[in-house]
């Protein structure tokens, strides 16, 4: 094979490669449809944008919201029926005073006021 033959040979095979590149096989429609159907089935769900769900996520999701609800219920119940030994923090803070009527008839009967004269 001469040098000229080799060069011609390279040119011709490059012509074949170029022909293959310029005429790629068409993707069958059914194949593309199957690929897109697979994509649809396997695609992760799109996260919700805004709204109530975003608030719930910001609060920590289910566990966070559950804790909040529980704490609210406990606080409400303590307000309605406080335990006997619980200090009246609200009264102290608001400086409220309570009055109690005292029956002093026994003190009068004791006689100390008579002795005084």
């Amino acid at each position: 094979m001469t040098r000229s033959d080799k060069n011609t040979s390279d040119t011709e095979i490059e012509t074949l490669f170029a022909a293959a590149r310029s005429a790629p096989p068409a993707v069958p429609d059914a194949l593309m449809a199957s690929i897109l159907a697979d994509a649809g089935q396997m695609q992760p769900a799109q996260p919700a944008q805004g709204g109530v769900f975003s608030w719930l996520r910001a609060l920590g999701g289910g566990p966070g919201v559950g804790g909040l609800v529980f704490a609210t219920c406990v606080g409400f119940w303590i307000g309605v029926a406080p335990p006997a030994n619980l200090p009246d923090l609200a009264g102290q803070l608001l400086n409220l005073q309570s009055s109690t009527d005292i029956d002093d008839s026994d003190l009068t009967g004791f006689g100390w006021d008579i002795e005084e004269g």
Partner: peptide, 9 residues
């Protein structure tokens, strides 16, 4: 696609 964009696929 991974974020759920239906047009990306």
């Amino acid at each position: 696609y991974a974020a759920g964009d239906p047009a990306a696929a």
